[in-house]
Write a protein that binds this DNA or RNA. Structure first.
Lengths: 316, 316
DNA sequence: CTGTTAGCGCCTTCAT
DNA sequence: ATGAAGGCGCTAACAG
């Protein structure tokens, strides 16, 4: 029996008589033979593999993203490699290089030091690309993202309506896209709400950062009635300080976070925060990627925005 | 210039004159040429790829594990695919099949429905295997694991020494390996401490399960002075109930968890718990795998145990 | 329904 | 220091 026949037994690309089929399957089982995906890839120029690049799989946001992506591409037969960059440029570039030399069919990329321009080279190499990172919106590469600016604006609007104009923000980083966008949203909403010169303290995206920020806020000037935190860890730190000073939440100071991490339901009082669905983001990215990889869509770049929602609990 | 020369420019496997090298590199850059890892793999029979199989990357334990593994194999030039099984047998088998057809160089496997026997087939296919799951210890496949039994015994000993013999356990599941082992450790330590018939409530590995377990414990019989919980989520639930009833922790009831999740430092009082270092587990797995893949080690199966430690905070 | 042939892109002899 | 040739395992095109 010829290689061709064996090939067709496994691929089903053309009819094989039941007898031969049975025979081939028996022998294959006995020999432990199974088709080599490597050789198949060389021939077909497809690897059925995608690469997902994130800063650090260990950041609680990313496992959800990865899982959403995997679940959305699996039905089409794709498997995922995962790469971490620690947000370092060299690593980001190395992983783009890897995508090209490995001939992956697609890549979902969340870069911080690298953007659409670098992804263009990958796309030109014939690899489907979805950008989640820096410069996603409006570029020539498909993208999915959250509208952090809008989310922050909405949360700010909520605080303004409920607690009035005595409002402040603790931001984590003015350079990081999330920090920048959330701050822009905050400031925009303040402007709309006719709040003049709202206070913003910039620290770090950590609980310790939140403590520092809140201490500064309480240290000088009038105590704000409501505080928007750029993420939940910051909010946790802010709450630490308020409690330590015997201030009641939300009666003395209301606090809102962003991200809805697990801990948000564990602190007391439970944290009011904005939930972004990382899994859905991954799923959307996967869908876009698949339509590109299968050639079902060939048009110009699409830009999607994944949903967010304000989860009102007890801290505001 | 011949293909051979180009090959050697990229591989460095034999000297190439500076002039030719430069020329080849220039042309390659201009054409966007880069060697195909696929073709290389077909020829070399190595893919420089490993597969890590976990129940669900979304469970907080696994991202750390994956990262530890990745960081430990990366210096040797390996990249990782990640597969989720949701602890279902069909998925576990499918991923073993994938490992073989993709010709990955190694696999790190955390299976629940599938064990050393199934991994043997993979090993016979010439793939390096490290088992983290069911039946790891003592089998014919390299393995790394935590000694959950010992950890639970140590935590129990701590409680016994500090609070005496009025002790109970809330377990999550008597079938799951973790649940079983932790319970065995608890019971063993009780025996050693001459505690007759310690109470054990079996619920689920969740906060809700912890609530149920603690309610049952308080519902009938004498209130225990100390409670060992099979994981931190259970401990969180147990604490919810104690607080709701106005009981003080640890003055009325001491609580110990297991895993040291993030939330353990956020609850009040901060949770005393056993920390297992998932990242280290992954790193150990990676090291074993690499020594197999490179052929540096060819002997019989090795079984390692990763470290754990009791983190004493305020709940006990 | 089955077989023959050629080539995917690389690397490793073997020659020059 | 460079080339030519063959084959890794598969599949599509072309017979029969």
């Amino acid at each position: 029996v010829s290689p061709t026949t064996v090939s067709h037994v496994f691929s089903g690309h053309r009819p094989v008589s039941p007898g031969t089929r049975q025979h081939v399957e028996d022998v294959a089982r006995r020999l432990g033979y199974r088709p080599s995906a490597v050789a198949r890839s060389l021939r077909s120029r497809r690897t059925d593999t995608i690469l997902i690049v994130v800063p650090d799989i260990t950041n609680s946001f990313y496992p959800e993203l990865v899982r959403g992506l995997q679940d959305s591409v699996a039905p089409s037969g794709y498997y995922a490699m995962v790469g971490n960059t620690d947000a370092e440029e060299a690593n980001e570039r190395a992983l783009l290089e890897l995508a090209m030399s490995r001939r992956v069919d697609g890549i979902v990329f969340h870069g911080f030091r690298t953007g659409p321009a670098d992804l263009a080279a990958v796309a030109e190499a014939g690899i489907a690309v979805v950008n989640l990172g820096e410069g996603a919106a409006g570029a020539a590469i498909d993208s999915v993202r959250f509208d952090d600016r809008l989310a922050a604006a909405e949360a700010t609007g909520f605080l303004l309506a409920k607690y009035g104009r005595s409002i402040a923000m603790i931001d984590g980083d003015e350079v990081a896209p999330v920090g920048r966008d959330r701050r822009l949203g905050f400031e925009g909403a303040c402007r709309d709400g006719r709040v003049r010169r709202p206070r913003v303290e910039v620290t770090e995206f950590t609980r310790a950062g939140g403590r520092r920020g809140m201490e500064r806020l309480l240290g000088r000037g009038k105590r704000p009635r409501a505080v928007l935190c750029a993420n939940d860890m910051i909010a946790l730190g802010a709450i630490d300080v308020l409690k330590a000073r015997g201030l009641r939440i939300p009666d003395d100071v209301a606090v809102v976070g962003h991200d809805d991490v697990d801990a948000a339901t564990i602190v007391s009082p439970p944290l009011t925060t904005t939930r972004t669905d990382a899994r859905q983001l991954g799923a959307l990215a996967g869908e876009m990627l698949v339509t590109r990889m299968t050639g079902e869509y060939r048009g110009k770049a699409r830009h999607q925005v994944a949903a967010h929602q304000l989860v009102v609990r007890d801290s505001a």
